[in-house]
Amino acid sequence: MRLYLLALPPTDSVTEGFLPAAQRLGLDVTVITDHAEPHRRAYAGLAVVPEVVELDPRDFREVISFVSRHHPPAAIFSNSDHLQTQTALAAQYFGLPAKDWKATFRAKNKAQLRRHLAATGLDTVRSAEVAPGNDPAELAELDIPFPCIVKPREGVASEDVALAENLDQLLAAARGIRERRPTGGLVIEEYLEGQLCTLETLGDATTRHVVGGFRTEVLLPTFIEKLLEFVPQHPQPVVDQILAQLDEVGVGLGACHTEFVIQADGRARIIEVNYRAIGDRLDLLLPRLLGIPYFELVLRVHLGEALPADLGIRSGLLTHSFYLCADQAGTLTTAPEATDQVIDGVELSYRPLRAIGETHPLHGTNRDYLGVIETIGPDLDEVRRVAAEFLEAHRWEITP
């Protein structure tokens, strides 16, 4: 059986998660990407190296044409934020299990998500859209609450997300984003205060499971995630609110990573729906944390298999993931090497996310990450302590 995997840049999720899982399932894999050579380098050390084909995965028509003349597909899959709709359309063409393309479009297009949720009556976030080509100056004529958020309509992670306290800051941020993304739309929306969290779900054709979530802290005003801790079960009223909204969006098949805030009155309000697995190596924690073959389960539902009624999730373990973030442009000259340790019963791993000797500007996004400290154990105070001691014992230096 052949799995076609659509991708843009190589990611740890694919290299360390989905490709080894595909091998364990006995699948032949063809990776379709617009730049093949970085993928060939990334996969060179794998036990089974997938076929890599250079083709624009953003064009579902070309994907369909290629698959039609290549090997028959058992599944067409992507974990990319940018490729969910194309993947859904290609999979549907071949009669394969697929996400609803309308749901993937709503999730990716942040303005459409806001309009859709408002139309359902479940949640209305005050927002506005600047269409591609329109002058951001039109925002001066709108009734926009401050503080507010401005971000790319089809953005990902924290890239080009800005907090504006007044109209001058909003216009400056919007014009800056438009200069960097001249063909993209912008979304402006009210700032939702509250505890930032995530909900991780996994579904097959008929059933959706909640596999847990994370509590998140971010750096302001860039909204870069700096700390995430696993939450086995958010309060049920909160989960019910988010699931009701995901139902209206159309989220079901496969993995979904939803970011939301819990406000002081218990109201849960979605920030964005990422219709794929959580990233930044947190998905790679899930098999160890939950005791389930997470990546295999995701692939199995795209092969048309049903999930078990009970996933067999192990409870009792907690995590602390702390991201080291550059605070200036320059060359990374000092940083620890990757390590895996067990300290006082706590599993600790450190993974560099930037190599010593690399020179980078300051992006104001998660591309500024230098490395991540991950700890897993049964006691939250202990996993925090072990992570803090590792942080204190090591140095990360950037030379301008």
Rank of each mutant, 00 (worst) to 15 (best):
L299P: 09
Q328Y: 15
L317N: 04
R314C: 06
T331W: 11
L307M: 12
R300C: 05
P293Q: 01
D310K: 11
Y323H: 04
I343C: 10
Y294R: 05
Q328R: 15
T331C: 06
A306E: 14
V298R: 03
D327Q: 15
P336Q: 01
Y323F: 14
G291S: 00
F322E: 11
G330V: 00
E337D: 14
E347A: 09
A326Q: 07
L297W: 02
D340L: 14
S315C: 12
T333L: 08
I343N: 04
A329T: 05
A335G: 10
F295G: 02
F322I: 08
G304H: 09
L317W: 13
E337P: 09
T334G: 06
S321C: 13
Y323C: 02
I313F: 09
I313Q: 05
F295E: 01
V298I: 12
P336D: 01
D310I: 01
A338Y: 15
Q328W: 13
V342L: 09
V346L: 05
Q341E: 12
Y350G: 03
G330D: 00
A326G: 08
L324P: 02
Y323G: 04
D340H: 14
Q341M: 14
P308Y: 05
D327W: 15
Q341K: 12
L311P: 04
R351T: 15
L324R: 07
C325I: 14
E347L: 06
L297C: 04
R314L: 12
L317R: 11
E337G: 13
L332W: 01
V346F: 07
E305P: 14
D344E: 11
D340G: 12
Y323T: 07
V301S: 05
H302T: 07
L311R: 08
E347P: 06
I292Y: 01
L303K: 10
E296T: 02
V346N: 07
E305Y: 15
G330M: 08
E305A: 15
R351G: 03
L299M: 08
R300Y: 10
P293F: 00
L303E: 11
D327M: 09
